[in-house]
Amino acid sequence: MIEVRGLQKVYKVHEREAGFWSSVRSLFDRKFRDVYAVDDVSFSIAPGEIVGFLGPNGAGKTTTMKVLTGLLHPTAGEVQVGGFVPHKHERAFKRRISLVMGQKSQLIWDVPASETFLVNKVIYEIDDAAYRRQLDELIELLQIAEVMQKPVRQLSLGERMKCELAASLLHKPDLLFLDEPTIGLDVNMQEVVREFIRRYNRLHKATILLTSHYMADVAALCQRVMVINRGKLLYDGEISELIERHAPYKRLKLWFDGGREALELLESTLLSCGDSGLKVIAQTEHHVELEVARQHISTVSARLLQTLAVADLTIEDPSLEDVISQAFAAGVQP
């Protein structure tokens, strides 16, 4: 559905030092520097897939999205989306896509969101019956029956985001680009938006590319992630594999009945486990937190359970945030 080969986007950035005279000088003598926002990125996305796009600010996520939607011309490389070349701006292409940006609004500010819907109905030439059907569906999925009758300026951020989504999906796009759709929303509302994206994907077999700062979004929605940094694609594959590769350990938390004896026992047990990639993260009198290599997790926990009077024991995967920051630190290769 989406094919990207060797995509490159270079910005010419005008450089000058701060201060009055250097700004005057820059009027006559401009220095330009090439910034590689996206450099030699290739990937392909199958129909119906939801792919998470991760990376720090300025990594090239938004630039890639803009190239895929046709807002930017690529400097080099080939891009095909749904069989179209995006920057040719064909209407048939625009009818099939939608871009939702969490930080920018397309709703008319002073009137209810339903007015924006009507404008979009005419813009996308949706006939009455199809419009009614799609609107009813969106109202039901997003629970916006009352919200959409209130002037947009009186809506909460979460309500506005729901209307934003509805306005962008009236024409039933099967290619969806979501740029930070949950930014600034509280946990509840994030969950609502996430659930909506999942259902829309299932209902319309839509292909979705999603960027987010919240790992929870990506972890909940996407099986596959792409990690980008400084314009380079660092990783493209299953989330679980990313975790395995860059976090080959689990977190083991242990609560036990205290006392000096117990602590000594713990120490000797840990020593006896030897070279199982074991690392103590935190320790108090009744509690210890360990990082243990995946393949040793069962032996280590079994031995601890045998020797100590364990009150509670949990084993967790590291958070996706940790994995990503580890991946960046390691400078991963795809």
């Binding site: 046709g70 807002l71 701006h89 209407r91 625009k94 009818r95 939608s98 397309q106 813009i123």
Partner: peptide, 13 residues
């Protein structure tokens, strides 16, 4: 200035 022109350019009009 605010970048909402993107929405205009994405419309099939």
């Amino acid at each position: 200035r605010k970048g909402t022109l993107d929405y205009v350019l994405l419309k099939p009009v």
